[in-house]
């Protein structure tokens, strides 16, 4: 048993290797599609290309936060540590992707809205979403009892999804936002909307799948492995001290 664990611990499973290679290749293809294949937007010029990463990375963050909810619910039900590890991985990966989302958005907004940041409803709620998950990490580090830490994190991870859902739906419910919608009609105040043509769809489609699914799933998988290794080390330490 111990030797099996030892051997496994260093070699990632073939499925993960394959997935990682696929993710790297597809990310490169997506980059080429966005940068060179898609036509330049008539109004906005090259800066519009950033949108091919901006919107998919938010979606990837959302997928990761959903993973946190799944991990949390299942941890509370089964008390198996692996579900809590999934939840933690979801938060960290989701946080990274939503930062990419915020930064790309900011770069795009500079020429289009003439400002890096504005206190628009969509932007504010996206920032709040990041803070919620930062709070998750703080809560986690504030609890010493490991069992309590996992339970509280699960609960908070479930509660926190409300802010991610809000960010998703806010452009539909707050009429004053200037953030354009990609699918369906944009709010009347939206600035910087562009036509959702076949040309846009061709570059968005692959990037949506890459950033929305491939990248978060690959990263979460690696993060879980990392956590398992850290836990194994921790366990050795406790065992050694208990002797």
């Amino acid at each position: 048993m111990t030797t099996a664990v030892k051997n496994d611990a260093f070699a990632p499973p073939n499925r993960l290797r394959l997935l990682t290679i696929a993710t790297v290749i597809f990310t490169a293809i997506g980059l080429v599609m966005a940068m060179f294949v898609a036509k330049t937007d008539v109004d906005q010029g090259d800066i519009q290309r950033i949108f091919y990463f901006h919107m998919p990375s938010f979606f990837g963050a959302f997928v990761a936060f959903i993973a946190t909810v799944i991990g949390g619910v299942n941890y509370l039900r089964t008390r198996e540590n692996r579900w809590d590890t999934l939840a933690l991985a979801g938060v960290e990966v989701g946080l990274a992707l939503s930062l990419i989302n915020l930064i790309t958005g900011s770069i795009w907004a500079r020429p289009i809205w003439n400002t890096w940041w504005t206190w628009d409803a969509r932007l504010t709620s996206a920032a709040i979403m990041c803070l919620t998950y930062a709070a998750y990490l703080m809560l986690r580090s504030g609890i010493e009892n490991p069992e309590k830490r996992r339970v509280f994190s699960s609960v908070y991870g479930i509660v926190a999804i409300t802010t991610a859902v809000l960010t998703l739906v806010i452009i539909r419910i707050v009429p004053t936002t200037i953030h354009p919608a990609v699918i369906g009609p944009s709010p009347q105040n939206a600035e910087g909307a562009f036509e959702f043509s076949q040309n846009v769809a061709m570059a968005l489609g692959p990037n949506f799948i890459i950033w929305g699914f491939l990248i978060p799933i690959t990263l979460i998988w690696w993060r879980i492995r990392l956590q398992n290794r850290a836990d194994a080390v921790q366990m050795r330490k406790i065992e050694a001290l208990a002797e």
Partner: peptide, 19 residues
């Protein structure tokens, strides 16, 4: 139930009640 309870509640609660 945490060590720094007085400070942790606002951090945990403020973002969540934004909706």
């Amino acid at each position: 139930q945490t060590r720094s309870r007085e400070t942790l509640l606002p951090i945990a609660m403020l973002p969540v009640i934004i909706p």
